[in-house]
Design a protein around this nucleic acid. Structure first.
Lengths: 344, 344
DNA sequence: TTCAACCACGCAATCGTTTGCGTACCCAGA
DNA sequence: TCTGGGTACGCAAACGATTGCGTGGTTGAA
């Protein structure tokens, strides 16, 4: 490996000077600098991040710890986070939490021993008790991503859920539905909990009563059977809100198994739009989460916190966009009072 | 930060002894070891990967450089790679190549300066000339992932394409189609090139002639319009093979725009199955790439190469599985002489 | 001629580990 | 009393950068 010493010898200067030239950290005579740069070029010197880190303390790398599910949104998030980090000269270390506190803790420890400058974390349901305290104690700059547990005293960025779900429900109510179901993730996940709250709120605004029978808060793999159970009810739902991507897939599978035509026999609106939403028949009405913006914001907040660890923690909620298609039973009119986006 | 020195002082031994105790690298008297471990416990000492790397040379981290596209397969790949690496005690550093040689080079340089022990790379079309030589010269242990350019002298893992595509085409031929089109990525990408080759081979086996008009090798974003152009031909195709995920989406969009019923008006088979393949109407017949297995194999090969840099390079091709549904025009019979997997 | 101010650069300590050599001690056998 | 072989541990030199403190040389004003 080519080191600063090699470059220095080739250029006929000291290591100190090489360092100052490549880092522009103090003035160096033009001619000397040129010799050094030429030596750098000809040796292919790249610098050693390890050695640098040892003395400076920072690593210019940040850890991203989240459950690597099949959620198609994740790719967009990763891309945005990587791009924003890259622009700031940092690199991304990835760790799968499996959404379980034990793996999550292990992932965080691994990142810490790698001396990452900060951590982006999508906390599991158990995190507020089991892993966040450790993070706080260790003083690791952290931003929570996508899920927003309460009272953590930590920076957070995620989607706005309550209002968005409420709007979705209200829309179904305005279309005349009286039995509106909700299929979503387990209550421990803040996102699911908030959407359940928004659902209730939306029912209220549509002058409908909340019925616990119509709510299925289930793990991702159970959503299809949960939906089938809802359909078996004495008073089955005529419309359903899918709280996330697995719920959407589950509802669609259940409808297909029961031979129900979505949009006609069963109105459907979903959180988290997918890129195949317009390929289905009928195309799915859904809220598109601003994942890329969430990722970028999270990175910016993390960098700010690294720069100023004392700043008061902030929580940012980014509103989704409604993509109005036909699965809700409409045939493509915009929803009144809504910021809508039409398909091309 | 708590260092070995702190632990050593607390335990009343030298730094050397602490190191040997925590690494079990030479025998230490039972009583001393216990004192040291107690000190480790009470200080919460974790060790500093940075300092260790500086002296040992290794970082126990590997770089994954690939284009972070929206391809849903990527998540499964990431998950598999991360899991396999984790099991081996390594961590994953992610870098987006944007599928362009310049960004790719930058990504590789960044990984190298981070002293990764090895690199997993999905090479861009320009890579064999522009980035692989640098990798070879630097002696970075490398495994190529997903795309398999020829004569690189580098370990490679990817899907089997020629035979798989040929089978797909032959199936369409057996259903009576005479005008079978191919929509796939640009020829520079080895995967697309191999699939184009398999397509030609399949035509031959179905006793059909190859017609350049029926082949669209286009960038991902152009697949829909390319498909429409094919449909405008004097003798438009009655069946189409989608070479990858963007091509599939493009073909579906084009068909929808033209009001063509897939499976009836236009037979469709695709490479790269998607988890919503069974939700469409009709469900999509596709080959499911063994992405997870590809990821795991790549990691294993990389670790082997790190252990033995002199070993002769290997190329591994993993065959996909056929998921036979209805978009090809069949109504669910297995294809003769094929290893098929039925949907639940 | 002297001296201050400034410019251009180098010395050597430092970061937290690992590890090749030693050294001090103990005990058994001659 | 030596000596030889263990056992239990410590010293100090790396690893490759960054950076506070100097030092030698030139210049211009007094």
């Amino acid at each position: 490996m080519v080191t600063m010493r090699d470059v220095a010898e080739l250029a006929g200067v000291s290591i100190t000077t090489v360092s100052h030239v490549v880092n522009k950290t103090r003035p160096v005579a033009q001619s000397t600098a040129e010799r050094v740069l030429a030596a750098v070029e000809s040796t292919g010197y790249t610098g050693d991040a390890i050695a640098r880190s040892l003395v400076t303390g920072g690593t210019r790398s940040i850890g991203l710890a989240l459950p690597l599910t099949g959620d198609p949104q994740l790719m967009a998030l990763l891309r945005a986070v990587d791009a924003e980090l890259n622009a700031a000269g940092h690199t991304l270390i990835l760790a799968d939490t499996h959404d379980q506190p034990e793996t999550e803790t292990a992932a965080i420890r691994s990142l810490r021993s790698r001396r990452v400058d900060g951590v982006l974390l999508t906390p599991s349901p158990g995190a507020p008790e089991l892993v966040l305290p450790e993070l706080r104690r260790a003083g690791v700059p952290t931003v929570l991503l996508g899920r927003l547990p309460e009272n953590t005293g930590i920076d957070q960025v995620g989607p706005e859920n309550v209002q968005a779900t409420s709007d979705l429900v209200r829309h179904l109510g305005e279309l005349g539905h009286r039995r509106i179901a909700l299929v979503t993730g387990p209550d421990g996940v803040s996102t699911a909990a908030e959407r359940a709250l928004g659902y209730r709120l939306g029912l209220g605004r549509a002058k409908l009563v909340w019925d616990s029978e119509l709510v299925a808060s289930v793990p991702t793999e159970d959503s299809a059977s949960a939906m089938e159970r809802l359909l078996d009810l004495p008073g089955p739902p005529t419309a359903v809100v899918a709280g996330d991507h697995p719920a959407l897939v589950g509802v669609l599978r259940a409808a297909r198994r029961r031979g129900l035509r979505v949009g006609t026999d069963l109105a459907l609106v979903a959180h988290e739009d997918v890129d195949w939403g317009d390929l289905l028949d009928p195309p799915i009405t859904a809220t598109a989460q601003p994942v890329a913006e969430i990722g970028r914001t999270a990175v910016r907040m993390l960098l700010e916190r690294i720069a100023d660890p004392e700043r008061a923690p902030r929580t940012v909620r980014l509103p989704p966009t409604l993509v109005h298609r036909q699965s809700c039973g409409c045939s493509h009119q915009p929803i009144p009072d809504q910021h809508t986006r039409q398909e091309p």
